[in-house]
């Protein structure tokens, strides 16, 4: 049996498959499908200090081999997360990664301070793709200095393993990645969604109320795979790779590109069993190719010729 364990810095996972934030709720919706303890980790929907109502409808649209979403971080807020969601998640033997989002650095700090030391929380994933209120809505994650400020502030507020979730909507993602690591991020998760939109020619209206939305699904996989490979080449930090992973072969490609673990997002909507099928498929791939562990294939991609 190949060794499936991997580490994202101080965060140790029993296998390299994690569910991606915003595609798995807070876990309870999956109770009928499989035991959450099978997962390497589970990333919660983004949690904000106060409850968020999210964007107006329509919030999603299917596009060629992908989907757009502009949910707007609808979530019950930190108090409700701690009181109602975390107790459920705590009972499973899987790494609970809490995704935190805010539009002010103070709020990121407040989230990190409250979550620090909460039993059952294995790590924080800092969503730096949020617009920064203090900078006229510019996203933290598109600017190396802002990235450094927010990651540094969260680092001072918690001893929990911290993963910085990077947006791909930048010119040089490796620069942002380096800033996050220099400011204290233990690991990097990439990529978040690519911005896009959809228009209905018949009605001549946007198909998304917010107009700008995030594109996910298999159509972004080649883009995400390159981003992971680039960052893996440039930055000495473990990567949680994601972006259009639909099956075990896709997941293996991300591992070969340099990700130490992978996150399953949109695939959860399409196949509720996706994450566990991918765990089994990775194990099978390792056995069939004679690899003794996942570690052996991380970053093992070779030149085409």
């Amino acid at each position: 049996m190949p060794d499936l364990t991997v580490s994202l810095g101080p965060l140790h996972l029993k296998n390299p498959v994690v569910t991606a934030s915003g595609t798995f709720g807070f876990g309870s919706e999956w109770a009928d499908f499989y035991d959450l303890s099978r997962l390497g980790g589970l990333t919660t929907k983004a949690v904000t200090v106060l409850p968020r109502r999210g964007n107006p409808m329509p919030r999603t649209a299917e596009t060629a081999s992908g989907m757009l979403n502009a949910i707007g971080l609808q979530n019950p807020g930190l108090d409700a997360f701690l009181a109602e969601k975390l107790p459920y998640l705590r009972r499973f033997d899987t790494a609970i990664i809490v995704n935190i989002a805010a539009d002010r650095i103070e709020d990121f700090v407040a989230l990190a301070e409250r979550l620090d030391g909460q039993p059952g929380v294995a790590a924080l994933e800092v969503n730096i793709s949020c617009p920064n209120q203090a900078c006229g809505g510019l996203e933290f994650g598109v600017d190396p200095a802002l990235t450094s400020q927010v990651i540094g502030a969260v680092r001072s507020a918690t001893a929990l393993p911290m993963v910085a979730k990077l947006t791909p909507n930048v010119t040089r993602i490796a620069d942002i990645a380096q800033s996050a690591v220099d400011a204290g991020a233990d690991a990097l998760s990439l990529v978040n969604t690519y911005v896009g939109t959809a228009i209905d020619a018949r009605t001549r209206r946007f198909r998304i109320a917010n107009r700008q939305a995030g594109l996910s699904g298999p159509c972004i996989k080649p883009l995400a795979l390159l981003a992971v490979w680039r960052v893996a080449q440039a930055v000495k930090a473990p990567i949680l790779g994601m972006g259009g992973i639909m099956n075990a072969t896709d997941a293996v490609e991300f591992l070969l590109a340099g990700a130490s673990a992978v996150a399953i997002g949109t695939a959860n909507f399409i196949n509720p069993m996706a994450a566990v099928e991918i765990i089994d498929g990775i194990e099978q791939y390792l056995s069939q190719t004679g690899a003794a562990s996942v570690q052996e294939i991380i970053g093992a991609v070779q030149p085409a010729i």
């Binding site: 915003g22 595609t23 798995f24 709720g25 919706e29 999956w30 929907k45 109502r53 999210g54 409808m57 329509p58 919030r59 999603t60 299917e62 989907m67 979403n69 949910i71 609808q74 959860n268 909507f269 509720p272």
Partner: peptide
Amino acid sequence: ETVMPCGLGVCMGCVIKLRNEAEPEGHSL
């Protein structure tokens, strides 16, 4: 009848407004 990307309760893409006087807006999503 709404668009339902996941149908499983996780994507938040199918919300509707239900009266709820406890909310400042008078409804829940």
